[in-house]
Amino acid sequence: MAPDDDASVRVSPTLDADTSFLLARASALSAAAGNTALRELGLKVRSYSVLALAAEVGPSQRDLAERLRLDPSQVVSLVDELEACGLVKRRLDPSDRRARIVVATTEGQGLFARAREAIAGAQRETHAPLTGKEQLALGDLLRRLAYADLR
Score class of each variant (00 low, 15 high):
Met1Thr: 11
Ala2Gln: 03
Pro3Trp: 02
Pro3Gly: 01
Pro3Glu: 07
Asp4Ala: 11
Ala7Lys: 05
Ser12Gly: 03
Pro13Tyr: 05
Leu15Cys: 06
Asp18Ile: 11
Thr19Leu: 06
Ser20Phe: 08
Phe21Lys: 10
Leu22Asp: 03
Leu23Cys: 08
Ser27Ala: 15
Ala28Ser: 07
Ala28Asp: 08
Leu29Val: 15
Leu29Arg: 15
Ser30Glu: 08
Asn35Gly: 10
Thr36Met: 11
Ala37Asp: 09
Arg39Asn: 14
Leu41Phe: 08
Leu43Gln: 06
Lys44Gly: 14
Ser47Val: 02
Ser47Asp: 15
Tyr48Thr: 07
Val50Tyr: 10
Val50Pro: 07
Ala52Phe: 02
Ala54Trp: 09
Ala54Pro: 04
Ala54Asp: 07
Ala54Phe: 06
Ala55Arg: 15
Gly58Met: 08
Pro59Asn: 13
Ser60His: 04
Arg62Tyr: 12
Arg62Met: 07
Asp63Met: 13
Asp63Thr: 07
Asp63Gly: 11
Leu64Lys: 00
Ala65Glu: 02
Ala65Phe: 05
Arg67Glu: 09
Leu68Trp: 08
Leu70His: 04
Leu70Trp: 07
Asp71Gln: 05
Asp71Ser: 01
Asp71Lys: 02
Pro72Gly: 07
Pro72Ile: 01
Pro72Asn: 10
Pro72Glu: 01
Ser73Thr: 01
Ser73Pro: 00
Gln74Ile: 03
Gln74Glu: 15
Val75Thr: 10
Val75Ile: 13
Ser77Val: 13
Leu78Tyr: 12
Leu78Met: 10
Leu78Gly: 05
Leu82Gly: 02
Leu82Trp: 07
Leu82Asn: 04
Leu82Met: 07
Glu83Tyr: 03
Cys85Leu: 15
Cys85Tyr: 14
Gly86Lys: 12
Gly86Tyr: 14
Arg90Gly: 11
Asp93Asn: 13
Pro94Met: 04
Pro94Asp: 07
Pro94Ser: 05
Ser95Trp: 03
Arg98Phe: 09
Arg100Lys: 15
Ile101Arg: 12
Val102Thr: 14
Val102Leu: 11
Val103Arg: 14
Ala104Gly: 09
Thr106Asp: 14
Gly108Lys: 10
Phe112Lys: 02
Arg114Leu: 15
Arg116Gln: 15
Arg116Tyr: 12
Ala118Phe: 05
Ala118Cys: 05
Ile119Ser: 00
Gln123Ser: 01
Glu125Ser: 02
Thr126Phe: 13
His127Pro: 00
Leu130Ala: 09
Leu130Met: 10
Thr131Arg: 05
Gly132Tyr: 03
Gly132Phe: 04
Gln135Asp: 03
Gln135Gly: 01
Leu136Asn: 04
Gly139Trp: 08
Gly139Arg: 13
Leu141Asn: 01
Leu142Ala: 00
Arg144Gly: 00
Leu145Cys: 03
Ala146Cys: 00
Tyr147Asp: 01
Tyr147His: 08
Tyr147Met: 04
Asp149Asn: 03
Leu150Ala: 10
Arg151Glu: 11
